[in-house]
């Protein structure tokens, strides 16, 4: 089996009118991975993604997809499905016609009815695209990306504008794609989605990678937190804690289980109620906030 990465980005730089949107970016995506490209607004995620898809030409650096130049559409596009950040459909075509048209152009084969079923658009098959809601258009976009179960799927903010049911259905479909062996590259503003599903994450900030790794690798550099309140006249808690403007205590710790155990034991020994107790590991949100404040 080939060990060549599905995507190989080497020192990619992108410029818009001389302004560097992406600077010296390198990463690889392995077969069957779900790789999430996350970042602050304007970090360069979509520009990077569109370059890897073959929509943009790098100012410098190299991008290989399946070992080929992604701008060689005839060579790489039959193996990849693309869900763009913004839909581009003809409003006068029906949903069925649109999936059939784009599907045939991918040079993969599939059953349009099956694909519409995956995204729950069967009932809208004869509806013109111009009459769809924003969420339905996103689902249509997803349908065209996964037509024919491509080896590589790009999902640029796939769940934006979707209700919770549609989101769950979309992620179920992504899970099935991965079971079938597809590699998925994702950008999203919903960090919990990336935290739950990504094998690895590239965190972009101002056109460059701030960090890259698994969720555990990204979050272990920041402490876990314990929040709680205390009734008036309670004794001083046993852990080093800061106090917020709302009077609540905050403990930052790299030993969450041990410190939580200490705190709970102290509360029981002193018959003190820990009000609104919340404890948890570091989340991607915390890593993001740390980036934005850095």
């Amino acid at each position: 089996m080939s060990t060549t990465p599905v995507i190989d980005v080497d020192r990619l730089t992108l410029t818009y009118g001389g302004f560097p949107a992406v600077k010296d970016l390198s990463f690889q995506v392995e077969r069957r991975e779900l790789y999430a490209l996350l970042g602050t607004n304007g970090a360069g995620k979509t520009s990077t993604l569109e370059t890897v898809e073959g929509h943009r030409t790098p100012a410098s650096g190299a991008v290989r997809v399946f070992g080929k130049n992604p701008r060689d559409r005839a060579a790489v596009r039959p193996r990849m499905g693309i869900m763009l950040q913004e839909s581009g459909f003809s409003p006068d075509l029906t949903v069925r016609e649109t999936v059939g048209l784009v599907g045939r152009l991918t040079e993969r084969s599939d059953d349009v009815g099956r694909v519409l079923g995956v995204v729950d658009l069967t009932r809208k098959a004869t509806t013109k695209v111009g009459q769809l809601s924003g969420g339905e258009k996103r689902r249509l976009d997803f349908a065209t990306a996964v037509y024919g179960t491509p080896e590589l799927v790009f999902l640029d903010e796939p769940t934006t504008g979707l209700d919770i049911q549609s989101r769950d259905a979309l992620w179920d479909a992504v899970d099935r794609l991965r079971e079938d062996g597809s590699t998925v590259v994702l950008t999203t503003h919903y960090l919990e989605e990336a935290q739950q599903r990504a094998d690895r994450i590239g965190l972009m900030h101002q056109g460059a990678f701030h960090r890259e790794g698994t969720v555990a690798e990204l979050t272990r550099t920041l402490p876990s937190t314990i929040h709680f309140g205390l009734p008036p006249h309670a004794p001083t808690p046993p852990l080093l804690a800061s106090r917020g403007a709302d009077g609540k205590f905050l403990v930052e710790t790299f030993g969450l289980q041990k410190d939580l155990h200490t705190l709970l034991g102290w509360a029981e020994d002193h018959a003190v109620e820990l009000q609104d107790l919340q404890a948890g590991p570091t989340r991607l949100d915390d890593v993001f906030r740390a980036i934005e404040h850095s």
């Binding site: 898809e53 929509h55 559409r73 005839a74 596009r77 039959p78 693309i82 763009l84 913004e86 839909s87 581009g88 459909f89 003809s90 409003p91 784009v102 152009l105 991918t106 040079e107 065209t144």
Partner: peptide, 17 residues
């Protein structure tokens, strides 16, 4: 029209030249 509603970009996301 096809450019404005990003349909050209959609078509360029396929294998079509």
């Amino acid at each position: 029209s096809r450019r404005q509603n990003l349909f050209l970009k959609r078509l360029r996301s396929t294998a079509a030249g």
